[in-house]
Each structure stands twice: as structure tokens, then as C-alpha cells.
Design a protein around this nucleic acid. Structure first.
Length: 257
DNA sequence: ATGCCGGGTCCTACCCGA
């Protein structure tokens, strides 16, 4: 089974990239973030033609997440439990498919909106931990993947890319991410490649891609029995060489069975 | 140490991302 996560930075701008990638890589499940449109504008027909069911949580202009799946999916949640569903931003969708519960997340960046913006990020991470804990306690095989907007360690960003007080690298941010690991979740890419660069994002500006001045902020966290099935996990760097690419590349996780 | 790039939208100057 092949699962992937990809912040596409507008699905309408990246429809052809995603269709080409999906047709070539053939993931069973693809989690998309920053689709940046309402549900009615999402080009689901293009992916239906490739054999994928699509489930979308959309919002005008900002955020937006979607799940593409070959096998039928059942939507469990359209927002992160613990946050107010009525006014929450479109940042979470959770589905059940192929015996797995899959949470697709677009975690707040936390650098905008002052202290309240950063508090929202930390609150979001607390709610994510609570949701993960509930599923783990129920022995539910699960995956939480998406754009975490967290560089877990100093190896996860090019030196000099971000100041120490940036919301992606702050001590409280990293502690909140480690809490997810301590619950028993496995960082798929780091399980395969414990050390070194595995960037998933490069800024459009200042020649960041050319200089390989990247960040590792897109992650797939696996429950214990899913982690035991882990075969491979890595960012697909080649996608960043496409014309008009997203600033993020897909992260692909292969599971046995 | 950001908004140089590249999305978005009350269509065009401004907001936002990481």
C-alpha cells in the first residue's frame, strides 16, 4: 500500500501536476493540503477519471485539505476534534479506508497573527495529540500525515534558513511534536533515514531550491502496527524540478500488504 | 531573517504563506 501527502499550494494551479504524478506513481491514498478553494471548485472529476474517490474540506482562498483514494473511503471527521467546527479553518479531514484511519492535516504556520496566532498553533497540536491518543488507546491502526509546519530538529532545516524564534522551530513547537512521538507514533521518514537532509519544502524566493535551502515540514506519523509494515518513506524531490511547481514536494510512504 | 515568489481576492493593491 502506497500513501502520500502533498501540499500543492492551490489545486487549481496544480491540477495537471497532481494528475500526472498520480498517474505515474499510483498512490493508493493521496492527502492534499492548501487546496485553496471551496469544495465546488475542486477538480474531482479529473481524479475520478484516474480511478480516485475524492473527499474535500474546502475554504475560499486559504487552507483546504482533500483525500484521493483508489479504495472507498468513509469520512470520520471534517475538522479536528476539540476545535470549534463552526468557525474552524479547513485544515483537517479524517477518513477510514483499507483498515486504516488516516488523518490529513494542515497545521497552522503560527508566525502570523501575533501571540494569538502562535497559541492557535499550539492548541491545534494539543488537539491533534488528543485525537492520536484516543485512536492509539483504541488500538486503531492510524496514520497522521500532512503539512505539520514543524522542523522537528536542527537537521530538518538548512542552516541559517529560519531564526530560532520562528514558529516552525521554536522549543514549544518541537516539544509539541515530540509529544506525538512519545504517544507511540513513528516518524516514517526518520524511521527509514534517521539522520541527514530529507527536505520537503523550498521557498520560491532567493534561489532556495537552487541552493537546497529547504525545510522538512511535511511528515507522516504511523501507529505501531502500521510502522511495523513500513517499507519505505521519502520526499519525491524530483517534483520540485517541474515547471511552476508547488513549493512543497510529495512525501511517499510504502507499507507492506 | 525576510516576503525577493507565487498563490489568493471585494480586479488590483493588498493579504498570506514558511
Amino acid at each position: 500500500m502506497k500513501l502520500a501527502t502533498w501540499n500543492v499550494n492551490s489545486i487549481r494551479q496544480r491540477e495537471r501536476h497532481v494528475a500526472e504524478w498520480v498517474g505515474r506513481v499510483q498512490p493508493d491514498v493521496l492527502l492534499l493540503q492548501e487546496t485553496k478553494c471551496e469544495e465546488t471548485q475542486f477538480p474531482a472529476e479529473a481524479f475520478a477519471g484516474l480511478g480516485y474517490q475524492t473527499e474535500v474540506v474546502g475554504q475560499k482562498a486559504y487552507n483546504g485539505v482533500a483525500v484521493l483514494s483508489k479504495a472507498p473511503v468513509e469520512v470520520v471527521h471534517r475538522c479536528l476534534p476539540g476545535l470549534d467546527c463552526d468557525d474552524v479553518q479547513a485544515r483537517y479531514i479524517e477518513v477510514r479506508t483499507e483498515g486504516l484511519t488516516v488523518g490529513n492535516l494542515y497545521l497552522p504556520n503560527g508566525n502570523s497573527g501575533g501571540p494569538a496566532g502562535y497559541d492557535y498553533k499550539l492548541r491545534w497540536m494539543e488537539c491533534l495529540a488528543a485525537r492520536a491518543e484516543a485512536l492509539l488507546e483504541a488500538d486503531e491502526p492510524c496514520v497522521f500525515a500532512g503539512d505539520y509546519n514543524v522542523c522537528p530538529t536542527d537537521e530538518d532545516l538548512a542552516p541559517g534558513t529560519l531564526p530560532a524564534e520562528d514558529a516552525l522551530v521554536r522549543a514549544e513547537t518541537r516539544a509539541a511534536f515530540r509529544k506525538l512521538l512519545w504517544l507511540g507514533l513513528t516518524d516514517a521518514v526518520r524511521a527509514v533515514q534517521p539522520r541527514g537532509k530529507a527536505y520537503t519544502f523550498w521557498d520560491y524566493q532567493a534561489g532556495a531550491w537552487r541552493r537546497d535551502a529547504g525545510l522538512r515540514i511535511d511528515h507522516a506519523l504511523l501507529s505501531p502496527e502500521v510502522a511495523e509494515r513500513l517499507v519505505s518513506a521519502k520526499p519525491d524531490r524530483d517534483e520540485r524540478n517541474q515547471p511552476q511547481p508547488s513549493d512543497h514536494v510529495p512525501v511517499v510512504v510504502e507499507l507492506a500488504g
